[in-house]
Amino acid sequence: MKVLVADDSGIMRKIIIRSLNAVGVSDIVEAADGQEAIDAYKAEPVDLILTDWNMPNKSGLDVVTEIRALGSTVPIIMVTTEAQKSQVIAAIQAGVSDYLTKPFEADDLRAKLDKFVAA
């Protein structure tokens, strides 16, 4: 299983990658902004995407919109501090598969990963 982790925070990518490693995923592609994430997916599709919302160049919402526009049904988990109902709805309408708000506990992230890694 290959996973794309998109977040402009290097430490947040490491936190997510630690959790991915813990559920047995080691084939991971990192992106430090939205455009990098879109380019990485176009270059080599993955089986799961975790993306931040607020990133330089293109946002996580742009990532979801552009990848869905490609016809992809890859599961996408938005991991973000954006927690307002209108934003969650916008993300769902754009095509996110799941939503995790920061701050989160390790078990919260693990539960989301279990859902898609086991699928």
């Binding site: 947040m12 607020n54 973000t80 501090t81 954006e82 927690a83 307002q84 708000t101 920061k102 701050p103």
Partner: peptide
Amino acid sequence: ELANMIGGASKD
């Protein structure tokens, strides 16, 4: 990231 989470989560 701590600043991002505290600022981002508080503003909502």
